[in-house]
């Protein structure tokens, strides 16, 4: 049923309803009730709703510089995981700058420099890209010693500790 902007529901009420909806979807995903496809459907609906109301109402996440720079490292073209993570982060209220796939180290570093984002998120599905990822992480830390770095992909769960000797986090795909 088409809903027009002149119906007796304010844009703020619609936005609040969308936010409650995506929050419930996020909770169900975290509990394992929703699988990835379910959560992606919820994100699509949330985005459609935001695009519809598009009334200039600013949410806390819509203002300010990007908080997370995310991309797939050079030499890798697998970006579905990165796209999912970026969408989930945006639906969770974060401002995300997605720099794409097969991204040169310089592009990541320039984005970090320009946005001053506190988080750099790197994605790869391959083992042959890890050496360059290690280089990029070192360069990012030299540039921004305070930056937090997220690394994710299929193989990296077992290899993360090798990369920088720290603990791993669960990846989005279980």
């Amino acid at each position: 049923m088409p809903v027009s902007k002149t119906d007796a529901v304010s844009s703020t009420e619609v936005l609040n309803a969308l936010s409650r909806g995506i929050e419930r979807a996020r909770a169900k995903f975290k509990q394992g009730i929703y699988a990835i496809p379910d959560f992606l459907l919820a994100i699509d609906v949330y985005r459609e709703g935001l695009a519809f109301i598009h009334s200039g109402i600013e949410t806390p996440s819509a203002s300010g510089s990007p908080q997370i720079v995310i991309g797939v490292v050079k030499g890798d073209v697998h970006d579905m995981g990165k796209n999912i993570v970026a969408a989930v982060l945006e639906a969770s209220g974060y401002q995300v700058l997605d720099v794409g796939r097969n991204v040169e180290n310089a592009v990541f570093l320039d984005a970090l420099k320009e946005t001053k984002a506190p988080v750099l998120a790197l994605s790869t599905m391959m083992s042959t890209t890890l050496e360059n990822m290690r280089t990029l992480i070192a360069e990012a830390r030299r540039l921004r010693p305070d930056v937090s770095i997220l690394v994710g992909a299929g193989l990296v769960r077992c290899l993360c500790a090798r990369l920088h000797g720290r603990g791993t986090r669960r990846t989005l795909r279980r």
């Binding site: 050079k74 030499g75 890798d76 697998h78 097969n102 391959m126 042959t128």
Partner: peptide, 10 residues
């Protein structure tokens, strides 16, 4: 082919 071994089309 990319030097890493990745290919396009994906």
């Amino acid at each position: 082919r990319f030097p890493t071994g990745a290919m396009i089309p994906e």
